[in-house]
Design a protein around this nucleic acid. Structure first.
Length: 561
DNA sequence: AAAGAGAGCGCG
DNA sequence: AAAGCGCGCTCTCTTT
């Protein structure tokens, strides 16, 4: 059963709908408080349909209310609008409207537009929902698309819940770390003691008494003046030359990065009451991966992960999917040989054991090369051996690359399609095929075509992996709630839905962290593991590809390497 | 003074 | 000269 909710001035309109979207009960007009009570009274099988999870769910969570399922019209619109599986639908062929504009502002833009949705919202959600139902019904593979929309929407719930709960963060631990690495705290904009000492050593070594090591331009000029053969100040390049300045300079860069990205200012801005509350953006990346805004949640350096510590009496269950993308590729391409290589073992080790390459590093390099489109270097050189051993998998990514090079669209396993290249790209291709095209025109067109081919090549793998991860998250979320209920940690509808229950607190593409009461930790680890197996079956049915996890029960995120 | 580009580095 | 994919954030330097 669906329950469509929308805004009417200060009121909430509630419309129960059947599976085909027709009214199943009279519409209600409720105040916010009445709406909260109404939500709690409904069966947990209800699927809440709303324009935007961000506009609705945080308020419910703040009121102590957790829901089981939703359909996020904004996120689903984006998928259906571009998917090749629903290409013939009215929804896909209509001119661009407000639902399309909302995707842009919601994805990467200002964020203000989203916030305003709380009052008024997007136009005619009922009509939009009916168009979405019809687009799915008439789609090429409705089952896949339906799963994708459900997973995407579940992801939106997880994102809101994780933002609400926050990642446990110990200020004192973080402060100790900063004091050790940088010295005593100084005001923003000034250089802490240890950095200042390193800067002094750099100036001496380069005989540049006024050098500002934060300026790449000044630094490069000074490095060249001492005769070092480098073209940039990147750490990678610096490590390849020998000079007394290199050691203090690399130290400086490392610590300076800590200060600017995750220093005292970061802590003051993002850690509140012992929790880091980043804003996750489901669907924020074209491939379907999440993005995040504020605090760099998806770039937490290993350096500071020691500050992520479970509460007293609680544990962190940290799990990541081993070699997720190659396994996804094996499933996508139905490459039994590659799936076999990963069964019950590290997939790269399995490739070595199969005699395809000599070392694990080579196996990894070749796999990444195949998925990213490397033509040179180790990855490119080993590609023929990979292709000989796993012809189906390699053919799948090659085919995706060829489509992209032609400007065509590719689609993930569940139905998310890649964007088309922009007008500039098309113009460059057209230009190169004109009779009077110069060699430069042709070179440029070929280079851009290959570039887009690398994007589409990777899109099918990264995008399908993101779908697996969404299914994994959704299964984890569902089962954790069951575990919490069985343990009677807190009856549904307590003032704080996650205060006593195991709950997700972090997600990073192929990795999750669950914060759980210690007594439930083992059960939670099993839930996370089982959810991975279920996600695999949801995507690939009986095709025999494994998704092993490293799941560890720890007090501290830094314990996991 | 503000906005944008580029460099650099963090994560998967 | 280009060079394997996808991101966000901070800082410098240039442009408006």
């Amino acid at each position: 059963m669906y329950i469509l909710v929308s805004r009417d001035g200060g009121k909430v309109l509630v419309a129960p709908l059947t599976d085909d979207g027709s009214a199943s009960a009279p519409e209600l007009t409720l105040s916010d408080a009445e709406f909260g009570r109404y939500v709690q009274e409904q069966d947990s099988a209800a699927r809440w349909v709303w324009d935007d999870t961000v506009a609705w769910y945080p308020r419910l969570l703040a009121g102590g209310i957790r829901i089981a399922r939703c359909h996020d019209l904004r996120l689903c619109h984006v998928i259906l609008r571009h998917s090749t599986l629903s290409a013939g639908s009215d929804l896909a062929s209509a001119p661009a409207g407000e639902w399309d504009a909302s995707a842009l502002s919601g994805g990467a833009g200002e964020g203000e537009a989203l916030f305003e949705l709380g009052h008024g919202g997007l136009p005619d959600p009922r009509g939009e929902f009916l168009r979405q139902l019809e687009a799915v019904r008439a789609a090429t593979a409705p089952g896949r698309l339906r799963l994708l929309l459900a997973a995407e929407s579940a992801g939106a719930l997880v994102a809101a819940e994780m933002q609400f709960a926050g990642l446990p963060w110990r200020r004192d631990v973080h402060e100790r770390l900063l004091a050790t690495e940088l010295g005593p705290r100084v005001p923003h904009g000034t250089r802490p003691e240890r950095l200042e000492r390193l800067a002094a050593r750099i100036r001496v070594a380069l005989e540049a008494p006024a050098l500002n090591p934060d300026s790449p331009v000044e630094l490069l000029r000074a490095l060249k003046a001492t005769g070092l053969p480098i073209a940039s100040t990147r750490a990678f390049e610096l490590r390849r030359v020998e000079h007394p300045v290199i050691e203090p300079l690399l130290e400086y860069k490392k610590r300076s990065r800590l200060l600017s990205a995750n220093g005292w200012a970061w802590m003051d801005a993002w850690v509140v009451d012992g929790r880091f509350h980043p804003e996750y953006l489901p669907g924020g990346v074209v491939t379907g991966r999440w993005a995040a805004r504020g605090g760099g949640a998806l770039q937490l350096p290993k350096q500071v992960r020691g500050a992520v510590v479970a509460d007293d009496g609680w544990k962190l269950v940290v799990a990541d999917a081993a070699q997720l993308e190659p396994r996804i590729l094996a499933g996508l391409a139905a490459d039994v040989a590659m799936a076999d290589a990963g069964r019950g073992t590290d997939l790269y080790a399995g490739i070595v054991a199969g005699g395809v390459v000599e070392t694990r590093q080579q196996a990894k390099g070749a796999m990444l090369g195949a998925m990213y489109g490397a033509t040179t270097g180790q990855g490119g050189q080993l590609l023929p051996r990979l292709a000989a051993a796993y012809p189906r998998a390699v053919a799948a990514v090659e085919a995706a690359a060829r489509l992209g090079e032609r400007g065509d669209v590719v689609t993930t396993l569940l139905g998310r399609s890649s964007p088309r290249p922009d007008a500039g790209w098309r113009a460059a291709q057209a230009q190169a095929s004109q009779p009077g095209a110069t060699a430069a025109d042709e070179r440029r067109a070929r280079s851009q075509a290959r570039e887009w081919g690398r994007f589409t090549r990777n899109f099918i793998v990264q995008g399908s992996a993101a779908e697996w991860a969404l299914c994994w998250l959704a299964e984890i979320r569902k089962e954790l709630w069951e575990v919490g209920t069985r343990a009677d940690a807190s009856p549904g509808g307590s003032p704080a839905p996650f205060r006593r229950r195991p709950h997700l607190v972090f997600f990073l593409h192929d990795e999750v962290i669950v914060h759980t009461p210690e007594a439930l930790a083992k059960e939670v680890a099993e839930v996370v593991r089982e959810a991975a197996a279920r996600a695999g079956r949801l995507l690939f049915g009986e095709f025999p590809v494994d998704f092993p996890l490293s799941a560890r029960i720890v007090d501290n995120y830094a314990e996991v390497t």
